[in-house]
């Protein structure tokens, strides 16, 4: 499953990111914001009116807005709601 398909409020862990499909600067910006393999994320908001873009992703204690095209590059697996997000195992 990719991040854009994740239901709102469901906790998940990013398992892999296909950086190659993203523009280099955007890939760097996403990584700087902590959206990288191992990060625990959830979708907080999706879309305006009937659209499905953009998304607001909760990562750690931050909320990051991004587009569906970025979320589609991120493979996620469902995660149990842990008490606190921890680093990559």
């Amino acid at each position: 499953m990719t991040l854009d398909q994740l239901p709102i409020g469901q906790d998940a862990r990013i398992v892999a990111v296909d950086w190659g499909v993203l523009v280099a600067e955007e890939a760097q910006r996403l990584r700087a914001l902590g959206l990288d393999a191992g990060a625990l994320v959830s979708v907080a908001h999706r879309g305006v009116f009937a659209g499905r873009d953009p998304l607001a992703i909760t990562v750690g204690r931050m909320t990051v807005a991004l587009r569906r095209v970025h979320a589609r590059a991120m493979q996620v697996e469902l995660a149990q709601v842990g008490p606190i997000p921890v680093g990559p195992a």
């Binding site: 955007e26 996403l30 914001l33 953009p54 607001a56 990051v64 807005a65 991004l66 587009r67």
Partner: peptide, 10 residues
């Protein structure tokens, strides 16, 4: 150019 993205901390 490439469709511009939107990445922003809320």
């Amino acid at each position: 150019g490439a469709a511009s993205g939107f990445i922003m901390e809320l």
